[in-house]
Simulated scan of single mutants.
Amino acid sequence: MQQNFINGFTHELKTPIASLRLFLDTFYKHELPRQEQLKYIEFMKRDTERLADNVEQILYLGRIEDRSYKGEMSLVDLSKFMESLIEKARHLHEDLEIKIKNSGENWCHVDRKLFEALVLNLISNSDRYKQSSSGLLEVDVLGEGAKITLSFKDNGIGIDKKFHKKIFKKFFQVGKSAKGSGLGLYFVWQVVKMHKGNIKVDSEGKDCGSLFTITLPRVKFND
């Protein structure tokens, strides 16, 4: 499994590096019109962001697995926080339509950086495993009683039911053709657990999309 991780993570790093090399080589060898330059610069920005996200995820995971680390918690309105994260994600995933709805203010304690990485990880998965060039992800924030339910529902390739209990395990990947390092959903699970929450996945199988549901403790204020 560790070898699968090394292969997967190396691939995750090499892909944007190869892309950056190609774009830089193009700049070096050709005189490009300004409009073309701006297009390639935007591509390179995305590749550097992808590299940074991959490295940051490994560093975060190392901190989380250190049991003494409890996170840098702050009180946030998860509805507004999610709206800001979705806006950022739309810029990074232009071929994925992302819709969000919420039930008003929903306050909870989160580590902002870790939770942002969690959300962007789930969104990246929806983009990576979409069925067509234009996928759909629906994000819902619902506060009820003592808990907040955060759901991510997509119309992607789906997940076979036999993998539902395994998918959050470290280094686990669905089949040899799986993309990524095998750490993404393990990272998500660890972050949710650190926030004293729960996460589950539902999918009817191949080509039926996936639903990831996270529940978190909700902070209620006295009227």
Score class of each variant (00 low, 15 high):
1 M>A: 10
1 M>C: 03
3 Q>W: 10
3 Q>M: 12
7 N>P: 00
9 F>N: 06
10 T>F: 14
13 L>I: 06
13 L>T: 02
13 L>S: 01
14 K>I: 03
20 L>H: 03
22 L>E: 04
23 F>C: 06
26 T>V: 06
28 Y>Q: 10
28 Y>K: 08
31 E>P: 00
31 E>A: 15
36 E>I: 12
36 E>W: 03
38 L>S: 08
40 Y>K: 10
40 Y>S: 05
41 I>S: 09
43 F>D: 13
48 T>G: 04
49 E>P: 00
50 R>L: 11
51 L>S: 03
56 E>L: 05
57 Q>V: 09
58 I>S: 10
59 L>V: 14
60 Y>G: 01
61 L>S: 01
63 R>C: 08
63 R>G: 04
63 R>V: 04
64 I>E: 03
68 S>P: 00
69 Y>K: 06
69 Y>G: 10
69 Y>P: 03
70 K>C: 11
72 E>N: 15
73 M>H: 04
75 L>V: 06
76 V>R: 02
77 D>H: 03
77 D>K: 00
77 D>W: 01
78 L>V: 05
78 L>D: 05
80 K>N: 11
81 F>L: 14
82 M>E: 13
82 M>S: 15
86 I>F: 05
86 I>N: 00
89 A>Y: 02
89 A>Q: 04
90 R>P: 01
92 L>M: 12
93 H>C: 10
94 E>F: 10
94 E>M: 13
96 L>V: 03
96 L>P: 02
96 L>D: 01
99 K>R: 11
99 K>N: 10
101 K>T: 12
104 G>N: 09
107 W>N: 07
112 R>S: 07
112 R>T: 06
112 R>Q: 06
112 R>I: 03
114 L>C: 08
116 E>R: 11
119 V>H: 05
121 N>A: 15
122 L>I: 15
122 L>V: 14
124 S>A: 15
125 N>H: 13
125 N>I: 12
128 R>F: 07
128 R>T: 14
129 Y>N: 07
130 K>Y: 08
132 S>T: 15
135 G>Q: 09
136 L>M: 12
139 V>C: 13
140 D>Q: 06
141 V>Y: 09
142 L>V: 14
143 G>V: 06
145 G>P: 08
146 A>T: 10
148 I>Y: 09
149 T>F: 08
151 S>W: 03
154 D>N: 10
158 G>I: 12
159 I>D: 03
163 F>P: 02
164 H>M: 06
166 K>C: 04
168 F>L: 01
169 K>F: 11
170 K>Q: 09
171 F>W: 11
173 Q>V: 12
173 Q>L: 14
173 Q>T: 12
174 V>N: 01
178 A>D: 08
178 A>F: 07
180 G>C: 09
183 L>I: 12
184 G>F: 05
186 Y>F: 07
188 V>I: 04
190 Q>S: 07
192 V>G: 06
193 K>I: 03
193 K>A: 07
195 H>N: 02
198 N>R: 04
205 G>M: 00
207 D>L: 09
207 D>C: 00
211 L>I: 12
211 L>W: 02
212 F>C: 11
214 I>L: 07
214 I>F: 08
214 I>G: 04
214 I>C: 07
216 L>R: 01
218 R>W: 06
218 R>N: 05
221 F>Q: 09
222 N>S: 13
